[in-house]
């Protein structure tokens, strides 16, 4: 019993990480209908910046966890946001009027560039960050126990907070209205005076910021990363976004949670060898039953 509960906890925390990264995919897709393959690598860049920020802060003798985490978050979000903006400006904006596939290839190229640029400047070795926050809450269940580390609680809290703020921004603010207008009809939106280029840039920055948030939290939690770390987690997050219905914010989070849970439960109760096979099969199955994902709006076929 304790084991099953523990696996649920494992799945939820893993899922919230997927969800956080999936938001970046889903927002970009929602607004301009492109799969941003470089998103996983933006996450990877943010992991490096996290470690660099921590290294610099500790170099100046700062030891307290709150200051380090706030400083790191600030620095990482700022720099990663800049990456998001520049990537959009260089690799995607010139292709605004081209076919979606051209943008996709450009994104794959961008992903290669980011990976190798980081590898060349930082070296190919495995990197790590020191453990800053240890300890866990434990509940005894039967003769075993279920635990959730403080770091995991922190991740859950921040991702829910991030989701909440983002939902508020998209639903209630002027910026959000402009985003939604651009999503529905880019041409019409620009006729109505919305600077769609700017909106799209903003969306990319928001996507990168969410990736940065995930980058800081996950790097602090797992401690290990290298220049290749964005690939697997990127694919998983993308799967989560599609599972939940790409383009839908709550869908991304839901998809992430489902994916995380299914992985943890399958790995924990059946076999960790085939957990990815199971996840992808689940995805195929869900898409066969609901062709636009769990919370996605069915595409209206226009003649």
């Amino acid at each position: 019993m304790d084991i099953v509960l523990q696996q649920l906890v494992n799945g939820l925390t893993l899922g919230s990480v997927y969800g956080l990264i999936a938001i970046g995919y889903t927002m970009v897709y929602g607004i301009i209908g492109m799969i941003n393959f470089a998103h996983g690598d933006v996450y990877m860049v943010s992991a490096y910046i996290t470690a660099i920020a921590i290294a610099i802060l500790t170099f100046f003798g700062i030891e307290s966890f709150p200051i380090i985490i706030v400083g790191t978050l600030f620095l990482t979000v700022a720099v990663t946001g800049a990456y998001g903006w520049v990537i959009e400006r260089i690799a995607y904006r010139p292709l605004r009027s081209s076919s979606r596939l051209a943008v996709l290839i450009s994104a794959i190229g961008m992903s290669l560039i980011l990976q190798n640029y980081v590898q060349l400047s930082q070296g190919a070795n495995q990197q790590g960050v020191p453990t800053l926050l240890t300890g866990a809450i434990r509940f005894s269940v039967g003769d075993g126990f279920v635990q959730i580390t403080y770091m995991k609680l922190f991740i859950l809290f921040v991702s829910l907070l991030g989701m909440g703020i983002l939902t508020y921004v998209i639903q209630k603010t002027k910026l959000g209205r402009m985003c939604r207008a651009t999503q529905q009809d880019r041409k019409m939106a620009s006729i109505l005076g919305i600077d769609t280029d700017k909106v799209i840039s903003t969306v990319f920055v928001i996507g990168a910021v969410m990736a940065a948030l995930a980058g800081v939290l996950v790097t602090l939690d797992y401690g290990a990363f290298d220049f290749y770390v964005g690939f697997i987690i990127g694919i998983k997050a993308f799967t989560a976004a599609v599972l939940g219905g790409i383009g839908s914010l709550p869908g991304a989070m839901l998809g992430g949670l489902i994916l995380g849970l299914s992985e943890a439960l399958f790995a924990g109760l059946i076999s960790s060898d085939y957990k990815d096979v199971f996840s992808f099969s689940l995805l195929v199955l869900i898409l066969i039953i609901r062709p636009s994902g769990l919370l996605g709006k069915p595409e209206v076929e226009k003649v």
């Binding site: 799969i35 995805l283 066969i288």
Partner: peptide
Amino acid sequence: PVLRMHGDYLAIVTLGFGEIIRLI
């Protein structure tokens, strides 16, 4: 089963298929 899906959903399903083959 998958050909009635649209564009990008088809893309991810085929991606999943490729991965499943490799994992097996």
